[in-house]
Structure formats: C-alpha cells, structure tokens
C-alpha cells in the first residue's frame, strides 16, 4: 500500500470540507481538497495528477450537490497548472509557495464562480474569495505535516 498517505489525506480533506461549521466560519474555511491536491501533485507528479484532480472534483460535486463537472473541471485545471510549475515551486521557500497557493485557490474559486455565473445562479459577495487567503496561511503547516508523513514511510 504505497498510496496510503495519499488516500488518507484526500479522505481527511473531504471530511474537513463536509464538516458542518457555523455560517460565519464558512468564509474562513481553507479549501482543504485543493491544498492536498496541490501538495501531492507537487510531491509525486508521476502518480498524482490531472486525472486524480478530476475524480476528486467529481466527488466534491456530488458531496456539495453542485453541477456535476464543476469542481471536477476546476480541480483538474489546478492539477494541470501544478504539473507545469512543480519543478520550480518545489525549490521555493514556504512563503513563496503560499503565494502560489493563494493564486491557485483564486483560480479554483474563479472557475467555480464563472460556471455558476453562466448557469445564472450566483451573486458574488467579497467573502467568497477569502478562502484563498486562509488556504495560503494554512499551507506551510499542511506542507510540513504531509512531508513528514511521506518521509516516515520512506524510512520504514
């Protein structure tokens, strides 16, 4: 089971995403699934990539009750972008990675907002974008956590 940490982290991300939280806290919730996807696309690009992103997005669509394909599209695009950038970003210091995460989450939110706007069911409020900021803030901790998880497996 080489994929165990990957699967567990994706599962936890889905769990954290569906965890009920007060209405006011929704604007502060990091996009856990996007973060975990970015990490694994960066760490193991040969195994985790566009298709995984697409599948996870589909799961999220079903969980959220949104249109099928909406999050699937945005997450596969994120995976694709990370695939282009991963060689450079791996060398970045953590805070610069955070900046990149900020931009990527913005892209994710943007694609979602765009699709929801086209289908005519969406009015944007500015708090819609704040998860990008919280995601960027959470990134360094998540990065270290997931990296140590991966390292321990190699030691064994």
């Amino acid at each position: 089971m080489n994929n165990l940490p990957v699967m567990v982290s994706f599962l936890l991300a889905l769990l954290l995403t569906s965890l009920p939280i007060p209405e006011t806290a929704v604007m502060f919730r990091p996009e856990w699934l996007v973060l975990v996807l970015i990490y694994w696309c960066m760490a193991t690009p040969e195994r985790i990539g566009i298709f995984t992103g697409w599948l996870m997005g589909l799961l999220l669509d079903v969980m959220y009750g949104s249109m099928l394909g909406q999050n699937a599209m945005s997450l596969s695009v994120i995976a694709y972008l990370v695939g282009i950038l991963h060689l450079r970003v791996r060398m970045f210091p953590l805070w610069q990675q955070s900046v990149m995460v900020f931009v990527l989450v913005l892209v994710h939110l943007g694609i979602n907002a765009w699709i929801r706007g086209i289908t005519g069911q969406f009015t944007i409020v500015w708090t819609y974008w704040t998860p990008a900021l919280t995601s960027a803030l959470v990134w360094p901790f998540l990065f270290i956590l997931l990296r140590d998880l991966g390292r321990q497996r190699i030691k064994r």
Partner: peptide, 13 residues
Amino acid sequence: RILVLVALSIALM
C-alpha cells in the same frame, strides 16, 4: 489530457 477532461467536464455540466 487536460483538454479531454475539461471537455468531459463541460459535457457533464
């Protein structure tokens, strides 16, 4: 791959 998947997503939507 990304083009195929995006097309698939749009079709699904």
